[in-house]
């Protein structure tokens, strides 16, 4: 599974740590870490909660397009 660099960058933009985001969303820090690393595929419910917390849409954070895949391969 691909790394979710969008989530990582959006979180960094708001100056939030993984632990802070996890607390706001109501999950463990390890879960946020696993999502960012691409080790865990969250449910739509959790995706929505993360998007609401970060003030972004699902497309902004979780939509994968071809450009992302190519940039990760490089």
């Amino acid at each position: 599974m691909q790394k979710n660099l969008k989530l990582k960058s959006m979180r960094a933009l708001l100056d939030l740590t993984q632990a802070e985001l996890a607390e706001r969303v109501g999950v463990s820090r390890q879960t946020i870490n696993a999502i960012e690393k691409g080790e865990y595929n969250p449910t739509i419910k959790l995706c929505t909660a993360i998007c609401k917390t970060l003030g972004k849409t699902l497309n902004d954070i979780f939509w994968e397009d071809d450009n992302d895949e190519q940039s990760q391969i490089r």
Binding site: R29, Q30, A34, T43
Partner: peptide, 10 residues
């Protein structure tokens, strides 16, 4: 760290 006292989905 967790204050919801419940396990999350993962």
């Amino acid at each position: 760290m967790m204050n919801n006292h419940k396990f999350d989905e993962r």
